[in-house]
Simulated scan of single mutants.
Amino acid sequence: MTTFPGPRTGAPTAQGGTAPGGHLPPGTSLLAHAESLRTQADRLRAAVASLAWTGPDADALRARVTTLAARCDTAATALARGADRA
């Protein structure tokens, strides 16, 4: 059976430092995920804005992508709130 080594103690975890045990400080990864979701929401909105396709199917696609972008924003807000509490 193959064994895997555990995390290195004091390994760099973020720019400018380490956390005890080599882990990210509380909330840091949640904030990173929140930022990623906000970036994705912006990309989705930009894609919808640049869509040259017209017609009922295009309108339905725009509505679905806009809804998805809003869900990304909602999740990002919840993650950021969780990071503040961590």
Rank of each mutant, 00 (worst) to 15 (best):
A83H: 04
T54Y: 10
V48H: 03
A75Q: 13
G16M: 10
T28L: 09
P26N: 09
L24D: 10
W53D: 14
C72K: 06
G6T: 09
L37W: 01
G10Q: 11
L30F: 12
P7D: 09
A34W: 00
P7Y: 02
R8C: 08
L44A: 10
P25W: 03
A70S: 15
G22D: 06
T2H: 07
L30Y: 10
A69Y: 00
R81Y: 05
T77G: 03
A52M: 10
Q15G: 10
T66F: 00
M1Y: 11
A70T: 14
D84C: 08
G21A: 09
L31S: 07
V65T: 09
H33G: 08
R71P: 00
A70W: 05
T13W: 04
R85Q: 14
W53K: 08
T2N: 11
A32Q: 10
G10Y: 06
P20G: 03
T54S: 11
S36K: 13
G10K: 06
T28V: 10
D84L: 14
D84H: 12
A63C: 02
A80Q: 10
G17N: 06
P7N: 04
G55H: 07
T77K: 04
R64T: 04
P5R: 09
A80I: 04
A14W: 05
D73I: 06
T28E: 10
T39F: 11
G82Y: 01
R64N: 01
T66S: 13
P7I: 08
G22P: 02
M1E: 12
V65A: 04
T74Q: 15
A46Y: 08
L61D: 02
H23W: 00
R85Y: 06
G27Y: 04
T74L: 14
A76H: 00
L44P: 02
S36Q: 13
S36L: 12
P5Q: 10
H23F: 07
V65S: 02
G55R: 05
T2C: 05
R62I: 01
G27S: 12
G22M: 04
A63T: 11
T74V: 12
E35G: 11
L79I: 07
A69S: 08
R81W: 05
R71T: 12
T77L: 06
G82I: 02
V48K: 03
T18R: 13
G21L: 08
A19M: 01
A75C: 11
D84Y: 07
L44H: 11
A63V: 01
T39N: 14
R45P: 06
R64H: 06
L24Y: 02
V48A: 13
D59P: 01
G27A: 07
R81C: 01
P5Y: 02
A86N: 12
D57P: 00
T2G: 09
P25Y: 04
D73E: 15
T54F: 06
L30P: 00
A86E: 13
A86R: 10
L51P: 05
P56Q: 15
D84S: 12
P25M: 04
S50N: 13
A32S: 11
L51D: 15
R8L: 14
P12K: 14
G16Y: 09
R43Q: 15
V48G: 03
A78S: 12
H33L: 11
T54V: 13
R71I: 01
A34K: 02
T2W: 09
T3H: 09
Q40E: 14
P56T: 15
P12T: 15
D73S: 08
A63P: 00
R85W: 04
T77P: 00
T54A: 12
A52F: 00
L51N: 15
D59M: 05
T77F: 02
